[in-house]
């Protein structure tokens, strides 16, 4: 998966050859799209077991939605974006208060990223590719790169786990993390945003946890935080996200 996404990134980078970027200007826009994400936990360091054997952990796959609210000045955009991702992890292993929790379960992720985006000039899809998609009116496109600091909260609910005391089935762990998000994408260059231009984006984000809370969720309407503590480096997350969406208004 990572190899495929890497290749797509490379192709997008090559494809971003330029003329001029038009589209709407000096206006707000709301984008929304569907996302597929693949995440590795603790993959930055935790590659081997205490016995020295290399661990091949299964990545977490998740699906969700991405929204953003931005303002465009010429070829630069500034705004806020957020993703909500729901997924399952089969091979979780992380530290909590000096004990290792292993297990499988579900992960809910919400991140918020203030970003700056730089658009390239407009380019056109080569004629041969347009011919392949006969009947579809292919607009000019522009490429973009955007980045910004990112804050994320992960709620981990374990179905099967190996841990002593305290942690119960109606408990969940929530990790708050901070990191950095970098994205590359292409977007249709339509004269008006009301034509709902489509975008395709690949982003990579690295996070490091800074706080963990144990939460009693037995009453879904009124959660009870049982305890919180600093959790520096408990969980490191690397996430690749593929998003396709459009400008809504």
């Amino acid at each position: 998966m990572f190899t495929l996404i890497g290749r797509i990134c490379f192709v997008l980078f090559i494809a971003i050859m330029a003329k001029k970027s038009f589209s709407y200007e000096n206006d707000f826009a709301v984008r929304a799209g569907f996302s597929y994400a693949q995440s590795s936990f603790n993959s930055l360091e935790d590659k081997s077991s205490p016995t020295g054997e290399e661990i091949d952990r299964e990545d977490s796959r998740s699906y969700g939605v991405q929204t953003s609210f931005s303002y465009k000045w010429g070829r630069i955009l500034g705004g806020l974006e957020s993703r909500i991702l729901l997924g399952n992890a089969a091979d979780l292993a992380f530290n909590d208060d000096n004990q290792t929790i292993t297990g499988e379960g579900s992960i809910r992720t919400v991140d918020i990223t203030p970003f700056i985006q730089f658009n390239t000039k407009t380019f056109k899809i080569p004629g041969k590719i347009q011919q392949f998609f006969t009947g579809i009116n292919i607009s000019p496109w522009f490429g973009y790169m955007k980045f910004g600091p990112s804050w994320m909260i992960q709620s981990i609910e374990l179905d099967k786990f190996n841990v002593a005391e305290e942690f119960r089935e109606d408990h969940k762990l929530t990790y708050e993390s901070i990191g950095f998000n970098l994205a590359f994408g292409i977007e249709e260059d339509t004269p008006y945003k009301d034509m709902h231009p489509v975008f395709l984006e690949i982003s990579g984000a690295i996070y490091e946890s800074f706080k963990v809370s144990l939460v009693d969720k037995s009453n879904s309407q009124e959660i009870n935080i049982l305890g919180s503590r600093d959790a520096k480096q408990d969980i490191k997350t690397f996430t690749l996200v593929l998003t396709i969406g459009m400008i809504l208004f």
């Binding site: 709301v30 929204t67 806020l80 957020s82 919400v110 918020i112 804050w151 909260i153 809504l248």
Partner: peptide, 17 residues
């Protein structure tokens, strides 16, 4: 809440549309 500050207006407007 950070999530509420963002999600109430933005997700709300997507749903509102």
């Amino acid at each position: 809440s950070v999530q509420d500050l963002y999600q109430t207006p933005v997700l709300g407007s997507v749903l509102g549309l």
